Simulated assay, not measured.
Amino acid sequence: MNESSIRSLGLKVVVAASNDENHPPENMIDGNANTFWMSTGMFPQEFIIRFAEMTNVSSVTLDSYNVKHLKVEKNTSENASHFEFVEEKELKLTEGQLQTNSISLGGSNATHLRFIITSGYDHFVAVHKIDAAASSLVV
């Protein structure tokens, strides 16, 4: 098992509650902190990412803007259903700059991770980048 960045693990965004054509969900995983996914208002907002294979995730790092409260859930099946709670975090407001937060997932095995933004500091929130400390479980 090699420690990898989330982009090298075949990551895809498979669900997003909002979709703005100028700021699509795929921007969260393109590795560029200047691009982003933006909500279209209202809470909760959520998105689900899928790994190419079962993956052990020790933590995720999220670069975001105006996110106040975030929950992370995991799934270990082939389809994105029946999620289990893993962690939640209250993020601090950072006026005029990105919020960078590392969230420990304690070595959770997952095929999918669901991120639920339950509240924000404004009507609209943005996620610029997701990365992870993760290891593929397939040899």
Results as ranks from 00 to 15, higher is better:
Ala132Asp: 06
Lys129Cys: 09
Gly41Val: 05
Ile130Leu: 15
Phe85Leu: 12
Ser39Pro: 07
His123Leu: 04
Val60Leu: 15
His23Met: 01
Ile116Glu: 02
Gln45Cys: 07
Leu93Thr: 00
Ser135Gly: 05
Phe85Gly: 04
Lys68His: 14
Tyr65Gln: 14
Val139Ala: 13
Gln97Ile: 05
Gly41Lys: 12
Ser104Pro: 14
Glu3His: 06
Asn75Phe: 03
Arg50Lys: 15
Met38Asp: 00
Arg50Pro: 01
Asp20Trp: 09
Leu93Ala: 01
Asn19Met: 02
Leu93Trp: 07
Leu93His: 05
Lys74Asp: 09
Phe43Asp: 07
Arg7Asp: 00
Glu73Asn: 15
Glu88Tyr: 07
Ile6Asp: 00
Ile117Met: 08
Ala33Leu: 12
Val72Leu: 15
His82Ala: 11
Val138Tyr: 03
Thr76Trp: 03
Val13Met: 09
Glu26Thr: 04
Val139Arg: 14
His23Ile: 02
Gly106Trp: 12
Glu46His: 09
Gly107Glu: 13
Asn66His: 09
Glu95Cys: 00
Asn109Tyr: 09
Phe85Glu: 12
Ala132Tyr: 06
Arg7His: 02
Leu105Thr: 03
Phe43Glu: 06
Val14Asp: 00
Ser59Val: 08
Ala17Asp: 05
Ser81Arg: 13
Asp63Lys: 15
Val57Leu: 07
Ile6Arg: 00
His23Ser: 06
Leu62Ile: 15
Asn2Ser: 06
His23Thr: 01
Glu88Asp: 13
Ile48Lys: 10
Ile6Met: 12
His128Glu: 08
Gly41Ala: 04
Ile48Pro: 02
Ser81Phe: 08
Gln45Thr: 04
Asp20Tyr: 09
Ser64Cys: 15
Gly96Ile: 05
Ser64Asn: 14
Glu87Asp: 00
Leu70Glu: 03
Thr111Ser: 05
Asn75Ser: 12
Ile49Asn: 01
Asn32Asp: 13
Ser77Pro: 02
Phe36Met: 07
Ile117Phe: 04
Lys89Gln: 14
Val67His: 12
Phe115Lys: 10
Ser4Gln: 10
Glu53Val: 09
Lys71Tyr: 15
Thr40Leu: 14
Ala110Ile: 12
Leu113Glu: 03
Leu98His: 14
Glu87Ala: 10
Thr100Ser: 11
Ser81Met: 13
